[in-house]
Amino acid sequence: MLRALSLEPDRCTGCLQCEMACSYENEGVFNPAKSRIKVFAFHTEGRFAPYTCTQCDEAWCLKACPVDAIVINSETGAKDVLEDVCVGCKVCTIACPFGTINYNSSSGKVIKCDLCGGDPWCAKACPTGAITYVDADSTGLERMRAWAQNSPSGSASFVTPTEKDVQHYERVQL
């Protein structure tokens, strides 16, 4: 069963643990600037929204690539960038209408979410359950609706850390 990242802005506190986890997995450095997931802050609304590639069906990035450097990973369903094939033309970065594939000037290639090969670090690091790795079918909407319903308008909303076991982090790359 393919799984996907479910992102729930309502649960996000803006801690950026996800960005650090992502950059560490992929680049070996705590660096939000190199994270594939990005949390956007809405100060006056008091909201945060984590956002990354949804591994969309359309796969605009993959189709736009002139050299076939983006492929579908048969195990995870993620659209993976093959670093050694990418020539850095950036056409994918304007093709993805979600802005979730980006040029990394230090490598001269593009980077995007690859679901950490099926073990997404952002979801492990997120303390509140704003990012979870779920069965593709049950993603998002249902859970998001459920959340919206149990936070009745009128009283304040807040999120506490979710219960979970101790997480283990193993670096696939490098």
Partner: peptide, 9 residues
């Protein structure tokens, strides 16, 4: 209260 929020990390 609108919500709670975290500092970095």
């Amino acid at each position: 209260l609108t919500t709670n929020a975290a500092c970095f990390g």
